[in-house]
Every structure is written in C-alpha cells, then in structure tokens.
Design a binder for these strands. Structure first.
Length: 424
RNA sequence: GGAGAGAUGGCCGAGCAUGGUCGAAGGCGCUUGCCUGCUAAGUGAGUAUACUGCGAAAUCGGUAUCGAGGGUUCGAAUCCCUCUCUCUCCGCCA
C-alpha cells in the first residue's frame, strides 16, 4: 500500500510510475476523497470534543445535586448529529481503502520502463549451456523413463497440474530441499517452518488480496488460504510488530509447499513439472531498515544464484521491466535456468524488494536512531523453486544412455550415488 | 467436540460488583538531570500508537484506542450482544 501523503505530495511522480506499469489511475478523485475524509474527521472531532466537555459538566453538576436535563438533551442532539457524519466518514474511508488497496507499489528508479517481459533487461549470464551430441530429452520424458515421476496418478488423485514424484524422483526433490536449506543456513539465515494455511489478513498484508483472489486456493469455511509462497507466512510473522532495531536485518529461509490456481495460464506448460498447482519452494525472506534494502536485495540474489552455481547449472539474471514486475515489488530480479530441451532459459527464482509496501499493509515497523517509527522494508526471493531445479538437473545432467548424473554437491544427500539409471 | 477461566500501556498488574475527576494506580524496565573516583544505591523528571488542526519546523491543541466489532447511556476499561484469541480440565487424535 502506498502512503496517501506521498500520493498527495508527489502526484506526478506517482502517476508516472503507475503509467510505467500500464495503469492509468485517477489520483485526483483519490485526493479529493482524502480531502473529504479530513474535513469530515475535523468536523466530527469538534463535535466529539463538545460532547465530552458537556458530559463532564453533567458529571460535576450531578455530584453537587443540580438539575442537568437541559444539558443532557443538548448532548443527545450533538450525538445524533455526529452519528450521521460518522456514517459518511466510514463510507468515505471504505471507498478510499478500496482504491488504495489495488494500487501497486512504485517501481524503483532502476527498474527499466517497458511493456512486458520482452522489455526485461539482461543483467548477466553464468555458465555455458552444455553441447549435447544427441537430442536432449525433455524432463518429462526423462522423469517418466527413470520412474521418477508419475503424471497419470497425480491426475487421478487430484486432477490436472498435479504430479506424483516416485522413488529417486521423490528422493531427489527431498535432497534438493535439504541442500538448499543447509546452504542458506550456512549463509546466516534462520530457518523457519511456517503454516501452509494463512488467514485473509495475512494474504492482504503481503498483497495477494484483494486483487488476486482468483489465484489462491481457499478453505472458505475457515477463512483460510493455501499459501502461494511462504513469503506470505514468513513475512507475516512480524505483522503488527515493532521490531527491536538491533535484530534487523531479519533473514529467514523457509521450505514450504506452494499452491497456485494458475488461473489464466490455461494451455501454458501443461506438460511436465514446470507449472503445477502444488510445488515445493525454499524461500528467502529479509526484513530490514529502509536504508538497507537495496543491498539486501543483492544479498538475496547472490544467495539464490549460489545454489545454481554449486549445482553447476547455467543461468541468467533478468531485471524485470515495469510492465512485468509484480504488484508488491519495486524491483525484481528473475533467475532463469537453462533448459536444453526447450533451448531457452526458464524462470526458477524471483527476488524482489517490496520496500515498505507490505510493511505498511501489515504494520511491520521499527524505531530508527531518532526514535521515530519507520515501516520496515521487506524482501523475498526463491532460493530456489525446487521442482524446477529438479527439472533443470534432469535436463542438464542427462546422458545419452538415458541416465542422469547427480551433481557432485548433491551426492552427500543422495547416498553418494553418482547416477540415476534405468532399472533393469 | 464438552465444561470452565481469561484478554488492560514495553512487561507485570490494579480498576470492572457501586459507569463520570481513568490514557488509565502501583511496580519493573527504559531514557534523562543530580549525586558518585567507577559501578551500584539514592533522588528529580520523562517514558504508547494512530489520525487530525495551526505551523517552515520543534512545540502546542483535538479525537480515537483497556482483544475486535456493535449496542445502551448525557457519559463506558467498567453494563448488554456478537466475534476472535489464550489458558485449564475432559474427550478425540499424528
């Protein structure tokens, strides 16, 4: 959520940053609403003040045994008067909130202006895609041939976009989760394992609601949502808190399953493990002072990259353009991993600086060195999407005989096996 | 699921039966002045948040907040209703 005061004081800037996202928002109407809100607030408070004074007077007079009926009636009239004003104030507040809640974060000055993903800019590439002297198979074929994944039974139990990992597939997924967690913990992050179900307030705070309710799975009976990312539950660990400044930055790493309805992505990546309704992810979340978030975003990116470097899989870093960046983010790096069968890079991580956007919604604060309350900055990044990492391993480490070599760094998590081979 | 108890400031905790002078006693903690060779002790002062008004700003004024939301009343921490959460006991369960 944006600060209404910022909108008022710097409309042109706010407006142009929304236009950069392809949004034309009527800020004049918004500012007018807020002016009405102030006016009404003052009017009401004047009446309340009068009421309070008179009520105190009644108390005093009663104690000394005087008649107070005339004052009481006067106060009653005042109260009736401001009851109606209060109603319209509430109404205005609701309208104001409704508008404010769907305005996205302001993009950072370093975010390239653009229409869509084609305007994302390449930051750097790492590693060189391996030259295969045979036609590389897709991960779906490799996984099926090696009995690592069962797509049919996933569909049978849950429907389309669900898959079952079996045998070495399940083991590899688990190995990856452990490897990622261990690596990030070594880098100084505190592991947390948080609920996979959260309430609507938490979904609102991190920006999934109200605008993207179609994207989330719900348990409506209980006002609970399945998390689309553990960013939601981890960031909300600190909602409505004033964090002791000495403990900042807070750096967490969390494993969770993630659940996404993938509404609007019909036909995309229907085959394989790329786009499922449920997937595993190791998430990095940082909460820090506002002056530190720029550096902390780079730290998250570096940590996420490290996983692919240790696995020795080529990737590239893209800086998302204003047309492709997410609702809550001001600056986002995507890490895209090389997939030989598709002959292109595919997203495997997204690292975002949300600045104070989520903190304002969820009231995550700290006191700065002057004792002044500040909204913290929140950041998150995948470190990494586990299923897609498994995909990348299968494809990049496949051999001509159909086997898959286990990346060296992963072998301690895999009974020191060197290869996954077709069972005879 | 059944029965009961509870939710007050950074923390502990009084107030609620008998509504007013209660943003709220007292204690702890914290900040700060004095004192002191240093520390401790002592002693004085201060110590919530949000919104809002005047103002360049500090300051100052107003309003709200005693789990949340409604209601009664001239007036609610205190009375009534609804909800949420916590704790204890029983049952059930990984």
């Amino acid at each position: 959520m944006l600060d209404i005061k910022l909108i008022i004081s710097d409309v042109e800037n706010v407006k142009s940053k929304c236009i950069a996202r392809g949004l034309n928002i009527d800020f004049d109407a918004l500012i007018k609403l807020d002016a009405d809100r102030r006016k009404l607030t003052t009017d009401i408070e004047v009446l309340q003040n009068k009421r309070n004074e008179l009520s105190k007077e009644v108390g005093r007079l009663k104690q000394s045994g005087n008649d107070t009926t005339s004052i009481q009636e006067e106060v009653k009239k005042i109260s009736e008067n401001f009851a109606t004003l209060e109603k319209s104030l509430k109404n205005i507040q609701l309208q104001l909130d409704a508008q404010l809640h769907v305005i996205p974060n302001l993009v950072d000055d370093t975010t390239p202006i653009g229409k869509d993903e084609n305007d994302n800019t390449l930051v750097r590439t790492w590693g060189t895609p391996k030259e295969f002297d045979f036609a590389p198979k897709s991960h779906a074929d490799i996984g099926t041939d090696l009995n690592m994944v069962d797509f049919e039974r996933g569909v049978k139990t849950s429907g389309s976009r669900f898959a079952v990992l079996t045998g070495t597939g399940a083991k590899l997924e688990r190995a990856l989760i452990s490897f990622m967690l261990d690596t990030h913990i070594t880098d100084g992050r505190d592991e947390v394992m948080t609920p996979f179900l959260v309430n609507s307030k938490s979904m609102f705070n991190t920006g999934q609601l109200p605008k993207f309710s179609e994207e989330a799975f719900t348990c409506e009976k209980d006002d609970l949502f399945l998390i689309p990312t553990s960013e939601v539950s981890v960031t909300n660990l600190y909602s409505s808190e004033v964090i002791p400044t000495a403990t900042l930055p807070i750096k967490h790493v969390a494993y969770s399953a993630c659940f996404r309805r993938e509404a609007g992505s019909y036909g995309k990546d229907v085959k394989g493990l790329i786009r499922l309704h449920q997937f595993n992810k190791v998430e990095l979340v940082t909460i820090c002072r506002k002056e530190d978030s720029e550096v902390e975003l780079e730290n998250i990116l570096t940590s996420a990259e490290k996983i692919l470097q240790l696995l020795e899989i080529p990737y590239r870093i893209m800086l998302l353009s204003s047309g492709d960046i997410g609702f809550t983010s001001s600056k986002t790096y995507d890490i895209e991993v090389w997939l030989p069968s598709e002959n292109c890079y595919r997203e495997i991580s997204s690292c975002s600086n949300c600045k104070d956007f989520q903190a304002r919604r969820g009231s995550i604060r700290y006191k700065d060195e002057n004792g002044k309350m500040q909204f913290a900055h929140t950041l998150n990044g995948s470190g990494l999407a586990v299923g897609r990492t498994l995909v990348a391993i299968l494809e990049n480490y496949q051999n001509v005989d159909g086997s898959v070599t286990i990346p060296k760094i992963l072998r301690p998590y895999f009974n020191n096996m060197e290869k996954i081979e077709v069972s005879k």
